[in-house]
Design a protein around this nucleic acid. Structure first.
Lengths: 358, 358
DNA sequence: TTGAAAGCGCTAACAT
DNA sequence: ATGTTAGCGCTTTCAA
């Protein structure tokens, strides 16, 4: 264990430079209003002593932390098996870093942790929060709201239209799940497929629900009523995809296309299709969602999918939050949301990426 | 954006409960030395006001933060494509949470970020640091040492025996890379294979170097001098594994076994082997390293590999750090390392997991 | 432009 | 057992 020494204070720097603490403080924080020769002396003293401001003391008076919490609420930790979160984190980290903010990661392993997270957020450790992967009945939004921390959600929060209307200040970033799903299904129909199935994601998440809606939109539009047996519920994992695909082959052996709720699910489906002797795309065409390149380019055959720019979503969430924070500071009052406030939802577009699987 | 309100202070709670700030402080921090009726009154006041202690103020006086930085120094962000980090993070997060510590994640996207990280660590935001994925010429250990933050490294730091000797306080957790590699290669030889190749990891990391050493140990032992063309340098990624395997087939078409530096590499190798028409394990046996179950169980054929308990490593790193911190506090002085100090290296065992690929 | 001084909210001696 | 008080290191009026 490396040693931890007590660091010099403003006071020490001031003494060394022969000025007051106030002057040192000014220099350290941008230094306007301090004449050059003096400022230089202070800078040298800072350098010589290796002075680094004590953040706790600073926060105590400024009430800023330059830190943002990232809350990932994935009970049955799919969290990291899925590159999805990783990519968002990357985007967030980049944006925060660019604005000299720190990232405090709060992983919740289930209900038990919610109180802890709420307490932390209420504790005023961070200036704001970025929250992911909410589920329908998640108590977190309520707790976070009560904690009074400016928050941006990743993905449309799912606590119902009523609550949504009651709290118009909610800000979130999402991709056009429904539109992307429509494009995928339309593509399959354009290919001449008629028995187009859908393996859903975890339906307690809005992304999964929205993709299902998109699928239904197009099926209903083009084919009139669609066969409900063609929809199998799953959970965004490869194993779930396998299970679902098996069930699908069982109930509808004549299926000729599958739209999977994400690439990981498609991966599982592909495996089962191959094992069952079906050729992709000749017998069954497959489309995924997300476009995790390491996955989609290396499946056999390479996966046609709906791309969303996940890293950009992360970056955008962070940007929105920081922007909101600085606006709050400018007007000395937190934003309450409402019509005049920053966009309360940013929906990123999706693109269909054609590869060999459909 | 949700609103942010100004929270009640100790003072307010004290007023409401009709006691002094000190008493409230005592109750809030465990409450020994306060008689029950009073304590109860305080607790009620806390409850009614929704009081949450201001962490900045507390840290200012206690010099504790109950927060630990996790530094992941992976320049060319393989960071999240590889479940490895994710698993470690999980372990760390669990352990920290159990001890009411927060996790501050510092991702570095290259050299440029090192100064920032160093500044942050020196800024006294966190009580300690957990540092991963160092490379041979990494300046980070030096910077961290200068910052004077208690640190535990993940994986044997690689800055040479000299520096290592100069700083005996270095603590790290690693798995028995060399021993694991030996077991893998011995297994292949036991299978009767004689042209056993090794696809290395990124050799600027000690884990890769140690696995290579293990391979060489056994090859030299059993076969005497081994053919250097059987070793191909790679980088721990699937794409790297593919490249390396192609090169290997090129130079040694008679190869009958491959020990890959990790599972991801093995994945790439398997693909190339299949594409080349070789059967696994009949023509070429393959062994990986790590045992990322989602990968190893779903390759075709399932991958024989050397298991290390990655999550446990993370947990252990955190535990070691927290332990060191509390000891430091007990003796009022940071640990300087040395013989009397806590274990300076914990090496976790590895196990060979036999599946179908070898 | 610079300095003096008053806190920010909390803990920890020290009194009582 | 409880209260009083003195800071922790910093920013920020307010005077000079």
């Amino acid at each position: 264990m490396t040693e931890a020494v007590s660091r010099p204070t403003l006071e020490a720097v001031a003494a060394r430079a022969g000025v007051s603490r106030a002057t040192v403080s000014r220099v350290v924080n941008g230094g306007d209003g301090v004449r050059e020769p003096l400022a230089e002396r202070v800078r040298r003293a800072v350098e010589e002593l290796g002075y680094v401001p004590n953040q706790a003391a600073r926060s105590l008076v400024t009430r800023r932390h330059d830190a943002v919490a990232v809350v990932i609420a994935e009970p049955e930790s799919r969290v990291f098996a899925d590159p999805f979160f990783a990519l968002q984190l990357r985007g967030i980290s980049k944006e925060l870093t660019a604005h000299d903010n720190q990232l405090v990661l709060l992983l919740t392993e289930g209900r038990a942790d919610h109180a802890r997270v709420a307490r932390y957020l209420a504790g005023g450790h961070v200036d704001g929060a970025l929250v992911f992967s909410l589920h329908l009945d998640d108590p977190l939004p309520g707790l976070i709201h009560d904690a009074g921390v400016p928050t941006v959600f990743g993905g449309r929060p799912g606590w119902g239209e009523d609550a949504r209307a009651a709290d118009p200040g909610v800000v979130y970033v999402d991709c056009d799940n429904r539109g992307g799903a429509r494009a995928a299904v339309r593509h399959l129909l354009d290919l001449g497929r008629r028995r187009v199935a859908h393996i859903t994601g975890a339906l307690d998440q809005t992304s999964a629900a929205d993709r299902l809606d998109g699928y239904r939109d197009v099926m209903a539009d083009v084919l009139g009523e669609s066969d409900p047996r063609l929809v199998v519920e799953s959970d965004f994992t490869p194993a779930g995809g396998e299970r679902a695909m098996r069930e699908l082959l069982d109930r509808c052996p004549d299926v000729d296309a599958v739209f999977a709720a994400n690439d990981l699910t498609a991966l599982g489906a592909l495996r089962v299709l191959r094992a069952s002797g079906r050729r992709v795309p000749e017998d069954v065409a497959v489309v995924g969602f997300d476009d995790m390149v390491p996955v989609t380019e290396q499946t056999d055959p390479p996966l046609t999918t709906v791309r969303q720019d996940i890293e950009e979503m992360g970056r955008l969430m962070a940007r929105l939050l920081l922007q909101g924070l600085s606006e709050d500071r400018d007007r000395q009052r937190p934003t309450a949301g409402g019509p005049g406030s920053p966009a309360s939802a940013v929906i990123l577009p999706t693109t269909l990426i054609r590869r060999a699987s459909a």
